[in-house]
Simulated scan of single mutants.
Amino acid sequence: MAESVCRSLRDGSLEGEHATALSISDTLYSPLGSHVFHHFLYSLVSNIAASKSQARALVLVAYRRSPSFYLDLLKSRGLDHFLFDKKVLVLDCYSDPLGWKDRLLKSAGVVQQSAKNPSSVFKDVKDVPKLLSLILELGQGLVGQGREKFAVAIDSVSDMLRHASLQLVASLLSNLRCHDNISCVFWLMHSDLHVPRVSAALEYISTMSANLEPIIPSVDGQRRGSENLFNIEQNSHRGKLHIHLKRRNGRVKMHCEEVHVEQVGIKISAVSSESAIVNQSLLPKVQFNLQLSEKERDDRAKVVLPFEHQGNGEAIQIYDGRRSLSEGQKDPHLKVPSSTWSTSTETSTGNGEIHYLRDSDDECPDSDEDPDDDLDI
């Protein structure tokens, strides 16, 4: 399923649709979000370098890491560093996010050397509309003003929310998705740092979501320190990746895979049976039975319900009106009609009688009679 996410980021958006959006979230108990983000980042940059993706360039908005970190990361994966000049551009929101360093240098009279690309350094992360304009300007500078598209990656939306409101951040992501020159957008968020409505709002904007959970869930009441250390060690390099893909017909396809951190990158595979056994062993034991015992079933069968007709001990037979009652079941107070029928009126004896003959169920109407004549249409 992770390969499906990589293909969706590579293929981008269809004509007339908004850009593909991926939301990656992790927690303190499963801190592998950055590894998953780097995995999808490397996959997309590789496709861009090979001209296999819809996006021709990438703008990486760096809040959590410096631009040199991403340069070394992609170089360690075998990508050419000259790719940063033509296909990948990092918008630096990490070095001086609020412009304090620049002010201190100016107040001290220190002349700062001009950077190679000064427009890639952003010094006012609180100004979200200006950040949006700069992202679009840098992306269009890489692909030109034609119909070529570029991708946008944000390494930490949680850092954005430290300086801006949810409304501004959600508006920025929505505007990026709606732009004609953007192929795909993906970001990382630490969900346990925010209230649930923040995570729900950002997942609503996305078309795909990848949520990380610990491979060994924490159990309430677990007090032994050795078990906690073992769980922390296991969850630090292994985790479960729950992927949700929203289809165009409104349905959501869900899948769960296991993430394992290796020396270079991560490995995503199906959930192993060992993990399932460990999770079952950690389930708390309940204090009640889920099934009845043999004695309990017998006792339940003996209970007399007050609203149920109990009869007189004999089997209850329900008369359905089709077969005649036996002689022993006939009411002795009713007079048995004679077998000989007469059209003449007999003298009343004081006891009324009702004779009813059931019509045949499969009786067909006359051929010259319209069965719908009695309908008032």
Score class of each variant (00 low, 15 high):
S272M: 10
I215V: 15
G311N: 15
I318G: 03
G225M: 02
A201L: 13
Q54V: 00
A315E: 09
D11H: 08
D366G: 10
L334D: 08
V143Q: 05
V59P: 04
S120C: 04
E294A: 12
V61L: 12
M208L: 04
S199A: 10
R224Y: 00
S51Y: 02
Y29V: 09
S43C: 06
R103C: 01
I48P: 02
V61S: 07
H39P: 06
G146E: 02
E137S: 11
E262W: 03
N211L: 13
N228D: 02
E148D: 07
A315Q: 05
C184H: 02
D155C: 00
V36T: 12
V143G: 00
G221E: 07
P337H: 07
D320K: 13
L28G: 08
A170Y: 08
D159P: 00
G141M: 01
K335G: 02
A108R: 08
V110S: 08
A115F: 02
V286M: 13
S68K: 13
V259R: 13
L58T: 04
V185F: 01
Q263I: 12
D362G: 10
S199E: 06
L83W: 07
H194I: 10
G144I: 07
S348H: 14
I268N: 15
D80M: 10
K87M: 05
D361C: 12
S158D: 04
K106R: 13
G12R: 00
H242P: 07
L83G: 09
F82Y: 14
W187R: 15
I377T: 01
V125K: 06
A170M: 07
R64S: 10
L74W: 03
Y356M: 09
N351H: 11
Y63P: 02
A2W: 08
E314A: 10
I135R: 07
R177S: 00
F150T: 09
Q310L: 14
S174Q: 07
S326Y: 03
I243Y: 02
H355R: 11
K75A: 11
T347A: 01
H242E: 09
L105G: 09
E294V: 14
L334W: 00
H309T: 15
E308R: 15
